[in-house]
Amino acid sequence: MKTITEQKPLEEITQYLEKCKKVYLIGCGTCATLCHTGGKSEVLEVKANLEANGKQVVGWMVIPTACDELTKYALEEEAKTIAAADCILAMTCAIGVQMISLHLKEPKLVYPALNTLFLGMEESPGHFTEVCLQCGNCVLGRTAAICPLVRCSKSLLNGPCGGSAEGKCEVSPDIPCAWQLIYDRLAAMGRLDELEEIEPIKDWSVSVSGGPRKSDVEAECADTP
């Protein structure tokens, strides 16, 4: 599983940086590197681009995994250089952006250079598909391990709509119909009768509709005072 990102249009980034002269750049060595959106080469590319447009890049780094605890220490190490910058441009996923913002000693603007798209499953090398909505109430046990909430364009829970044609979704010929996939897999297992059961109405309160979700687990490396 990887967090899939894409770079924002340069115009949007430029707009963010309008009032900033000095910029500190941060990339991420994990998902964003894999997506070619925030690895070392992309960071250097953006650095050159900003400098060509009159900005001063006071420093940069690629944090190994921007969403984890070590980000805090990376920021501490670079604190002096970061202090000289008017803002940070984070070439990380949205979790990285927030992690950086959370751990800065002095409050400073952190702008996202990327759009965070989805949590992707690598179906084949380099090809990522969105397969989980993180709805908080998994239905995969009743849908042959294919999630219709995110793979069906209408999140239908009771079979394909009238727009399913030749295995494709009506929204685009590039999107496989999730219910065709579910149907084929259940057919192969001789379990089509299960599709005649009516899936009950979903409880969205355990999803994002219920407000921000939190989870407390025993920390692997608790912060020692």
Binding site: G163, A165, G167
Partner: peptide, 16 residues
């Protein structure tokens, strides 16, 4: 929609 796919499922969907 009797003409949509998977065609074998169309009667089941009506039954539902």
């Amino acid at each position: 929609n009797p003409f949509a796919d998977p065609s074998e499922f169309r009667v089941s969907r009506l039954a539902k």
